[in-house]
Design a protein around this nucleic acid. Structure first.
Length: 573
DNA sequence: GCCGTTTTCGGCCCGACTGTTTTCAGTCG
């Protein structure tokens, strides 16, 4: 059963949007917006909480707590229903147009009766917007352009694509004379799984040459804004990149500010305000006399707020400020902590590299151990047989003979609709390690999916649940079993949950990692490599693991081989 | 509507860019 938090957050968010369109009380709208974010990130399922417990959620007071209770009880909210009667859904939809916010949406609705994107298009075509207050020629043109963008919106960009573009532009700008330093910030630095745009930050005494070089890059498709401190472009592939140029002494404050997230910044700025300070991208200043307190490095800025430096993946206002104040920030796992790989494929099934090539690539990375886990026999397209598997094992043992890196022979089992896997205990006992994953029957009920995953966890030979949610970013929603039941089973049985490093998967997602960790689950950060180059995806899985607050202790393939073997052996006993 | 180591009232993150309203509002991040 899915948590109610998302449904509640969606309702609060919709109410906030409608309030900002009906206007009057901007701070009230913001309060609902903040409450929505807070509920969405709250670890406990709101449907299990009473009124007093609901008010424990940050940004939820008595009024919103009552509304949440009422919504959970009746499935509706009178205040929201009234707002919906006032503002048709299509008007809210208008605010999705870049450049058109709540004020203009309300204006075209009230003045022209426009209640949808299509009606707005018609109104513009008929010239009914021309000459209205706030709708000059340029504004109308921008709205039309925004509608085109929306129509062709391919959604957010995956982290690998954005990283590649960002690193390319950072390298180009770093070579511009006068550029002291340049780096990417924003959601990319926080290692979010997808990004809406790329934020770049550079230091120079004179921003002119950098801005000129930026808009002249071959990948620029369109210049959105072009000023002395900020320039925004859209690449030919539709990705927006913002470049901010600051003076050297502002680097730390600017990096902190542009890294975000919005929620984290609101928290840190609030702390500054309460201390009689003002935090902006230019520095931390004393309010009374405007004197500078800190700005050169992020460490300086955080220290002046009474905080240790907080790693970017944690900056989501998910309790990192409280943890920092208490001196309890996690020592996050890094790529350097990873000692081996537990999920990889060769050309024996659907990989494209041979066993020899994959093993050589793993050795080049300096791993202490490497597991080859080709698909098992229940996936007919892979044409796996017992004989082929045993032959691969013999070849692998020979390859590992006398070498420093230990080779583990494993398999990626298929978790069938009932939770069964490809082989019985006798054959499974011959493997060093087994991953088990869901590859089909995604449409089962939550109860069936829960039972299926719990049974897989209870199999003594299953060590890792591969890409547990099965989601594919932008293509497939993940399955929704009762995750708390699944994680409880994983913790109880000593089964690791995978953090799959494929940029389209990043599965488990960060929110589920946080929940699983609270249940005491261990994790395996696996590339699921089907080619040598896929081993490089490790950085993305590590980023996701960091967003889930994981330490090296939480990750079984950051353990020494001896400890990993003990983990596997304990489950088989 | 929420919140409190100055406060149960009076604040609420802060600044850049654009277009247009000749001094600022809207939008965005």
């Amino acid at each position: 059963m899915a948590r109610s938090n998302e449904a509640v957050a969606a309702v609060l968010r919709e109410y906030a949007d409608l309030l900002s369109i009906t206007d009057g009380e901007a701070f009230k709208a913001r309060a609902y917006e903040k409450a929505a974010r807070s509920v969405s990130g709250y670890p406990k399922d709101v449907s299990t909480l009473d009124g007093a417990q609901l008010r424990q959620i940050p940004q939820v007071g008595s009024s919103i707590a009552d509304k949440i209770s009422e919504f959970l009880r009746t499935g509706t909210l009178p205040a929201l229903e009234r707002a919906r009667e006032q503002i048709p859904a299509g008007v809210r939809e208008l605010t999705r147009i870049p450049g058109l916010g709540p004020k203009k949406a309300r204006q075209v609705y009230e003045d022209l009766g426009v209640t949808s994107l299509a009606e707005l298009r018609a109104a513009i075509d008929e010239g009914r917007l021309a000459g209205r207050r706030g709708f000059g020629d340029k504004t109308v043109e921008n709205i039309l352009h925004g509608m085109d963008l929306l129509a062709h919106d391919s959604g957010r960009t995956t982290v690998d694509v954005a990283t590649t573009v960002a690193e390319e532009v950072v390298a180009a700008l770093s070579a511009v004379p006068g550029c002291v330093r340049c780096a990417y910030a924003g959601s990319l630095r926080r290692m979010r799984e997808t990004v809406g745009d790329v934020d770049l930050l550079a230091v120079a005494e004179d921003s002119g040459p950098l801005m000129a070089a930026f808009v002249a890059l071959p990948l620029v498709g369109e210049v959105i804004a072009h000023g002395p401190t900020k320039t925004s472009i859209r690449t030919t592939t539709g990705l927006q990149i913002d470049l901010r140029v600051v003076r050297p002494e502002s680097w730390g404050a600017a990096l902190q500010y542009f890294t975000g997230s919005q929620g984290h910044n609101i928290r840190t700025r609030g702390m500054a305000v309460r201390a009689g300070l003002k935090l902006s991208e230019y520095g931390l200043f004393r309010v009374e006399d405007g004197s500078l307190v800190a700005s050169e490095t992020e460490e300086d800025v955080y220290a002046a707020l009474g905080l240790p430096w907080i790693p970017p993946p944690l900056r989501e206002d998910r309790g990192e400020v409280e943890a920092a104040l208490a001196g309890e920030l996690p020592d996050l796992v890094t790529a350097a902590d990873i000692r081996g790989e537990l999920h990889s494929h060769t050309d024996l099934t659907d990989g494209v590299a041979s066993l020899t090539e994959m093993v050589a690539a793993a050795r080049a990375r300096g791993y202490a151990y490497f597991a080859v886990t080709d698909h098992a026999k229940d996936m007919p397209m892979q044409r796996m047989t017992d004989e082929k598997m045993l032959a691969q094992r013999a070849k692998l043992r020979a390859l590992g003979e006398g070498r420093k890196m230990t080779l583990l022979h494993g398999t990626e089992l298929n978790i069938g609709p009932d939770g069964d896997v490809d082989w019985g205990p006798e054959f499974l006992a011959g493997f060093d390690v087994c991953v088990a994953s869901v590859h089909s029957h995604f449409q089962q009920s939550a109860e069936e999916l829960t039972r299926r995953l719990v049974r897989a966890c209870e199999n003594p030979y299953v060590n890792v649940i591969g890409h547990p949610s099965t989601r594919l970013l932008g293509r497939r929603q993940g399955i929704e079993p009762d995750w708390d039941d699944v994680f409880a089973a994983a913790a109880r049985t000593g089964t690791a949950m995978e953090v799959n490093c494929f940029p389209e998967r990043l599965d488990l997602p960060d929110e589920l990692i946080l929940r699983a960790k609270r249940a005491g689950v261990r994790f395996a950060v696996d590339t699921d490599a089907h080619a040598v180059t896929h081993l490089d995806n490790l950085r993305y899985g590590i980023g996701t693991a960091q967003r889930g607050w994981l330490t090296a202790e939480d990750v079984v393939n950051a353990w020494p081989l001896r400890k990993l073997r003990a983990f596997i052996a304990a489950k088989r006993r």
